[in-house]
Computed example of a mutant assay.
Amino acid sequence: MTTASVPRIRTAKEWSDVQLLHALEEAVETELNRHLEAAREWMPHEYVPWSDGRNFDGILGGEAWSLDQSKVTDVARTSLVVNLLTEDNLPSYHHEIATLFGRDGAWGTWVHRWTAEEGRHAIVMRDYLLVSRAVDPVELERLRMQHMSTGFEADNSHSVLHQIAYVASQELATRVAHRNTGRASGDPVCDRMLARIATDENLHMVFYRNLLGAALQLAPDQTMRAIADVVTGFRMPGHGMPGFERAAARMAIGGIYNLRIHHDDVLQPVLRHLKVLEVGGLGPDGLQAQQEIGMFMGGLNDQAARFEERREALLARRRTS
């Protein structure tokens, strides 16, 4: 979902990343304190049905995995693997944000806290998947090795504003994907686990969304340009994993994450909360970026409507076949 390249009109004054980091430090500290007050401690081991576990085949001579052992639905199984592989790439994400935001002051405290919280997600998901035999453990490990060996690099230019704009939407997209996967899983244990993870992701989204709002006040034209670039070129962080396109198609048809969800439940809430399309007093570049966002969202809504028609037709054929 990208738009054609449009010539950009630059304003005379632009903030450097270093200037922005210093100028946003107070907002980061405010949001960090809010986050720490709102976050609740939870233990990954409490969400795993350990009594269901048994040895796999291999050096311990247990039972080999087979599909009939899995309690979750097919679409949830696909989504769980994608979601876990995404969480597994945490070292790359930490490198990206730590390099850009720094490791000192409120920025550094947030970077490390965010990383620690995200680490719990991979821990509890992997433990659940293996103990409940929801997925093939051999395939899962091979995919993890392949995906992590590739790493992750942000799509947009490595600027502070682009990164903030990206994660503001990405954290919400992840929350939505986890929550929809839990609902579609058919397993109350899985649903409860993913709801707990989604709560964390929502707090992360609020942190970045509010920080993006502060950036809009500070540097409206540059921030609007960053939002436009991210909105029109958004991709989930797991897009580089093996078999992602096929998995994404299954998840889209299964109602886990698709164009309609992306438009209605991810982009629109962030843009509406920040009143992005209502911001006034912009310079030429900011105004152009704002117009690009409006045009793109209109086009995305049309694409989502066409996708829904195709999806409903496909599901109808499946029901009658």
Rank of each mutant, 00 (worst) to 15 (best):
T99L: 06
E31L: 12
P188I: 06
G213Q: 09
V111I: 12
I293L: 09
R10V: 08
H147Y: 14
P284N: 07
D200S: 09
L140T: 02
L143C: 07
R34E: 12
H262Q: 13
A168Y: 03
A289Y: 00
S92F: 11
T109P: 00
S185H: 04
M236S: 08
Y208T: 01
S16D: 00
E117S: 05
N301M: 11
V82G: 01
V230K: 02
E29W: 10
V135K: 01
D285S: 15
V206F: 08
T2F: 07
T181F: 05
R120V: 03
F234N: 00
P237I: 03
T99S: 15
L300K: 05
T181V: 09
G243W: 01
V48T: 10
G299S: 11
V48K: 06
E14S: 14
V131S: 06
N33L: 13
H263L: 05
L129P: 03
G182C: 03
G298P: 02
L143G: 09
R306C: 06
L315V: 07
A76K: 01
Y47G: 02
G294L: 10
T78K: 10
A165K: 01
R144W: 09
E312H: 13
G182N: 02
V276I: 14
N55H: 14
G255I: 02
F234K: 00
G281P: 07
H158F: 13
A98D: 02
W50G: 05
A134E: 01
R77T: 08
E141F: 11
I9H: 13
D68L: 04
D200P: 07
W15V: 01
V231D: 06
R34F: 09
E29N: 13
K71M: 08
R272E: 15
H147M: 07
H95I: 03
P284A: 15
A106R: 04
R144Q: 13
R196I: 03
L143A: 13
T115F: 14
K71D: 06
P137Y: 08
R183S: 12
V82S: 08
D265W: 05
R183W: 09
R319Q: 14
M251K: 02
R260Y: 04
E46K: 13
